[in-house]
Amino acid sequence: MNPTASQSSIVSITNVTKDYTLGKVVVPALRGVDLEVHAGEFISIAGPSGSGKTTLLNLIGCVDTATGGVVRVAGQDTKQLTERQLTNLRLNTIGFIFQSFNLVQVLSVFQNVEFPLLLQRKLDKAQRRERVMQLLEQVGLANHAKHRPNELSGGQRQRVAVARALVTRPQLVLADEPTANLDSVTGQNIIDLMKELNQKEGTTFIFSTHDAKVMSHANAVVRLADGKFLDRISAAEASRAMAAGDH
């Protein structure tokens, strides 16, 4: 989906800083980052290791809090929300895809995908079943609904994670290096799937990656370096910059 299709801002980050304290040393992870993400965008966050990609995603995902600045997600200032409200925001507005899939090993594929719906308590059993099976169809795992995660390949597990992230129909999906643990073909399939869902459902995707191929699918690439916002460029420009060795 084109970013101009909707101009409403789903993520708004203003002068955000994040410091980590390691013993007596304070390590700045983000140093005054500004970022605006509109609904329906498919954005990649790029940068070398230690540039602050994961920290930024954590702040947007409300799993961590900023040291300074303002983080707004779906119009809400995350600093003003209680722990319970933040959890509800994550449950109802944000979907997560993790680098190492992070599925619950003792639950089946169906149960893993259904889990966020159970937490929401909005749908009855039949509606939940329909929603989960529909998503499993979309990610091509309808026949594996009863399998446990350890019976699946890495790519299949990540597809389950994608289905779990999307099952609540969130406005925003955050993916932290979703293809890092996958081979290139499987990684490509996952990105294609995310792109397809972005275009079909209008879900906003923000993902971090090192991979130029993966980056090439993004509407825009936000580049970070040493915890600072470097620039926001197109995927083509990002690829050229990477080819030139400019991270």
């Binding site: 799993v63 959890t87 509800n88 997560f96 619950v104 937490l119």
Partner: peptide, 10 residues
């Protein structure tokens, strides 16, 4: 951590 991230309350 994952369950908390996807919206499970404490």
């Amino acid at each position: 951590g994952t369950l908390r991230a996807i919206g499970m309350q404490r």
